[in-house]
Design a protein around this nucleic acid. Structure first.
Lengths: 129, 129
DNA sequence: TTACATAGTGTTATATTATAACAATTTTAA
DNA sequence: TTAAAATTGTTATAATATAACACTATGTAA
């Protein structure tokens, strides 16, 4: 586990304490007071944080959340549930699911080293409204 | 199965005959000779085509491909393999996989009405290089 | 057949998301 | 201690997507 650089740490801390996924320009706005002024500074930190698995990108939302799995070193097997009403996103940690997907072979017998799965529906709260 | 409008048909035809996913502005460029001049015209058709399941959006690539499943009416359960070298995208039709994911419950017992799964790796061709 | 709702079109402008290119500095590891 | 790798800072710009408004076409129920 390597240490984070200054910008990476600032941006990771912000994402980590956020209850919801953050978008790049929302992050930029939030960290401007800490001296990070340009989009590229944000995107570079995000790229690195994704690469080392500290955060994940929610592709369908162009937003970023901290990995909830402390042992997650690499961002190669991710699954999320997304509420289509309130946009709450939760990372799914399910051994059965991850085993199933990591071992999945397509019809040519090909296995994949990486996947991203996004489930959509209503969260508990929104379902009961 | 409803009929497509003029713009929807033009754009669907283009995507359907493309061997690779197409991006919105690549589509725009291609259909300008057919009178579709503005991004919004493209995005509106894409939205509708996605909604009725004729095409799918590859979220990690911001690109669109035709559904390879003639019986697919709604875009609520999608899986793709994506080659990280040549960017070849293939839709996965696997009954076992779709059953597994459609029946998946999170740890609160919640089921989801929709999912999108993207596998990443090397396609056969790129693997053998 | 009218009228009314729904869906689609055309257009301009603008918002949002992301990267290119270049120069400098800091960190890491041989 | 030095050379490579990573990070930073900066300006400019590319790529992706939507807002707002006016108008037209289509389906459908009275």
């Amino acid at each position: 586990m390597q240490n984070l650089s200054k910008n990476q740490q600032i941006i990771f801390d912000l994402i980590d304490k956020s209850p919801e996924p953050l978008k790049a320009y929302a992050i930029l706005f939030n960290v401007q007071k800490k001296g990070i002024k340009a989009p590229l500074q944000v995107y570079r930190a995000l790229d690195k944080l994704v690469k080392i698995g500290k955060i994940h990108k929610i592709e369908s939302r162009n937003a970023f959340i901290a990995c909830n799995n402390s042992s997650c070193q690499v961002s190669n097997a991710t699954a999320f549930s997304i509420c289509e009403v309130c946009e709450k996103v939760t990372e799914i940690s399910n051994t059965n699911l991850s085993k199933y997907l990591s071992n999945f072979k397509d019809k040519e017998g090909m296995k994949f080293n990486k996947y991203n799965l996004e489930f959509f529906g209503l969260c508990k709260k929104c379902k009961n409204k």
